[in-house]
């Protein structure tokens, strides 16, 4: 019976989870929010609901940001299913 607990290793993996989590778990909602902000600017609807001038460039930017978020979610789905894809279709993703 050995107590082989490596504190440094646990700390390091926790730090990794925190960093990647911040990037994806906080970063993607932030991108989505930014997209929504641009979307609102693009449509010309202000905070109080009044209408000003449309801005097509902002709308395009908004859809670009939404696509980034959707692609990231799709990547997440592929990541969860990576072993099954490999098993059934022989498609190796994310380094197997």
């Amino acid at each position: 019976m050995t107590m082989d607990i490596n504190i440094a290793e646990i700390g390091l993996s926790a730090l990794r989870v925190l960093c990647v989590g911040l990037l994806l778990g906080a970063g993607l909602p932030a991108l989505f929010a930014l997209g929504m902000r641009l979307h609102a600017v693009g449509s010309g609807v202000a905070e109080d609901g009044t209408f000003s001038r449309r801005n097509p460039l902002a709308t395009i930017g908004a859809y670009l940001l939404y696509s980034v978020v959707i692609l990231a979610v799709l990547a997440g789905v592929l990541f969860v299913t990576r072993h099954s894809l490999d098993h059934y279709f022989g498609i190796t993703l994310f380094g197997g």
Partner: peptide, 10 residues
């Protein structure tokens, strides 16, 4: 972040 970025959205 989400609230800061969408503060001015309807």
């Amino acid at each position: 972040l989400v609230y800061a970025l969408t503060k001015r959205v309807n």
